[in-house]
Design a protein around this nucleic acid. Structure first.
Length: 279
DNA sequence: CTGAGCACCTGAGGGC
DNA sequence: TGCCCTCAGGTGCTCA
């Protein structure tokens, strides 16, 4: 499920459940995610001091000068109600609730890192700017990360001959733009996903920057309502997908001009676009 | 440095 | 019913 909007809404849902709470037990499945999950039983009695985010990494600051870094991969969720134990790889229990990392495909990640070394950890050190300035970026032990600007997008694409769509998904350039929102942002900006990145004009860089930011902001607003279903048992999966203009809509009419939406593959990932609106 | 390809893993859905 | 194929929201590695 997770692109940046879902990681962000997950964080917002978990914050009131975990922040300031003492962990009563931390259990792991013993199965490896992208990397082996460390033993975490010794975190019982430790307090979660704050929740933060960098790119799609959730960062749980702990009272023992360590940070629990979590990533949801392709299929991960953090939920108070995991569907089954088979794919529940980590559970953080407090006096009042339990939050589980549920991840069938196991592309996720759980690492315990010394907080002072967080910003220099290889996973985080090379990341590009954040698309949005959000409260979740603050409270990190280091300075808040830079925020995407059109100037950065323009400058950083000058040396890239690869198509703009896979380039947008490169976290060295900008973090948090996944496969769905790369297609959606390019549609909104009217830019062909196959345009070589270095051919992006300054004007297009400005437009694209704005549309990335608006698309993600809209998705966070909508994702809040769909993701709540994962942490609260009451709801069904939200109508999250109804906001997509092109993603998953192959052969359906473009919402602007009615032309059938085209599907292609770039860097082994599905791309959706309007052949008329994105010249 | 860039860019292309592959790898990790499980489950859902379509065609036969 | 079952088998086989393709596809899925991410990221990091290798090799040219």
């Amino acid at each position: 499920m997770p692109e940046l909007p879902e990681v962000e809404t997950t964080l917002r849902a978990l914050k009131p459940l975990l922040e300031g709470q003492t962990l009563t037990a931390v259990t792991t499945s013993g199965k490896a995610l992208r990397q082996p999950v460390p033993q975490l039983g010794h975190l019982a009695g430790i307090r979660v001091t704050h929740l933060a985010r960098r790119a799609k990494y959730l960062l749980l600051g702990l009272s023992n000068q360590h940070t629990l870094l979590l990533h949801l991969g392709m299929s991960g969720r953090l939920t108070t109600h995991p569907p089954d134990a088979k794919h529940t790889h980590l559970t953080l229990a407090t006096a009042t609730t339990g939050v589980s990392l549920y991840d069938p495909r196991r592309f996720g990640l759980a690492l315990l890192l010394p907080t002072p070394q967080l910003s220099t950890h290889p996973l985080l050190a090379g990341l590009g700017p954040e698309p949005l300035d959000l409260p979740s970026l603050h409270g990190l032990p280091s300075q808040p990360p830079p925020i995407l600007t059109a100037s950065h997008l323009y400058a950083a694409t000058r040396s890239r001959t690869t198509a703009i769509k896979p380039t947008l998904m490169d976290a060295k350039l900008v973090v948090g733009v996944g496969n769905i929102y790369a297609s959606e942002s390019l549609f909104r900006a009217g830019i062909n996903p196959t345009l070589p990145a270095h051919k992006l004009t300054r004007k297009q860089a400005e437009s694209l920057t704005g549309h990335i930011q608006h698309t993600l902001t809209d998705a966070i607003t909508a994702g809040g309502s769909s993701l709540r279903d994962y942490t609260h048992p009451s709801g069904q999966l939200g109508n999250f997908q109804s906001m997509f203009n092109v993603y998953g809509r192959k052969d359906q009419p473009c919402p602007h001009c009615g032309t059938p939406i085209a599907h292609s593959v770039q860097a082994q990932r599905s791309t959706f676009s309007c052949p008329t609106c994105q010249k």
